[in-house]
Design a protein around this nucleic acid. Structure first.
Lengths: 167, 167
DNA sequence: CGCTGTCGCGTTACTTTATTACAATTGTGT
DNA sequence: ACACAATTGTAATAAAGTAACGCGACAGCG
């Protein structure tokens, strides 16, 4: 994952292509793992991929229900959990929401940058931060297994446009 | 905040003294700020201070209700929100829970180390990690305003005792 | 003192988020 | 076609969090 990936999430880009590629990659990865990308799961991923924003489980559920899938919470939660477990989506603790992963394949529990103005979410390179965290923890005798790192702030596009207005 | 503070949270210590000092410090700080440490608020802080663990809002509420305070959710949420806003407690996103702050005074949105075995929570020095995060974000044009950093893992005491058994 | 405005508290009612349990169905391998 | 596991649909319920209203305590001020 490069620094460019951060800017990419916040700036205008060929999102069709961006989403399509993520979907293809997801399908390929699942095939390798012998996991099934069923219609609900596929559609759930597509819905998440429509934007670089995080969506609540019930927002996803509404969409699924409108398209003929089940309309009970477990439908959405199951699909989302599946995607998260297979590294195709992430859960944002801070927002009680989910976002598609744009770099499946990188082994990661990434760092998230959440713009408070436009609500877009980017994944940032995790290594330097994870290293710093591991070191600090180690000094206290603590062994880190998983870390949740979510930063709230302002993306370059929003900062440029108005330091606060939606972009 | 020193590295010793991490170990302190996970190892046996004079907790009476530890909690008492935090409470005194809290009272003093609030007085300076002209904020009132009312009975509900004080009791809420004491409840959180009883352990180095995080508690859910409804757990706190049960305790408060049993002691004659109101038994409706807003009672607990208001007291907890007050404590958080005044830097006397923290919210752990990952657990939907709250923990008393043991170092009020340090200006901080600290890093949390959560032991998955004994459920204790420690606050770790934040500077190196925050710096690493800010740098990574800056490279992508993102300005971090607030960061949630929560690590799940195993504390030294639990690791020594059984690599997994409650301590 | 008594007025007045703010703050804190308690309650009702409600919304949002998430899980448990079970039945029906689909897909896989033989 | 058959047995079996995985997946989906549904009902019901739990957990977490918020909005809105009124009452009473308390500080500041004439």
């Amino acid at each position: 994952m490069t620094d460019d990936a951060i800017a990419a999430a916040f700036e205008p880009h060929d999102h069709q292509e961006c989403a399509h590629r993520a979907l293809d990659e997801a399908a390929a990865r699942l095939k390798d793992q012998g996991a099934r990308l069923t219609p609900v799961r596929r559609r759930t991923l597509e819905i998440l991929l429509e934007s670089h924003r995080a969506m609540g489980a019930y927002d996803v559920l509404d969409r699924l229900a409108a398209e003929g899938f089940g309309r009970q919470p477990p439908v959405a939660y199951r699909a989302l959990e599946f995607l998260v477990q297979h590294g195709l989506a992430h859960r944002l603790q801070r927002l009680n929401a989910f976002a598609a992963c744009l770099h499946p394949g990188d082994d990661h529990h990434p760092v998230f940058l959440i713009c408070r103005s436009c609500d877009r979410v980017a994944e940032a390179p995790v290594t330097p931060i994870r290293d710093a965290l591991a070191q600090v923890a180690k000094a206290g005798g603590f062994r880190v297994e998983r870390a949740t790192i979510e930063a709230l702030g302002l993306c370059a596009t929003c900062a440029a446009s108005d330091a606060g207005a939606p972009c």
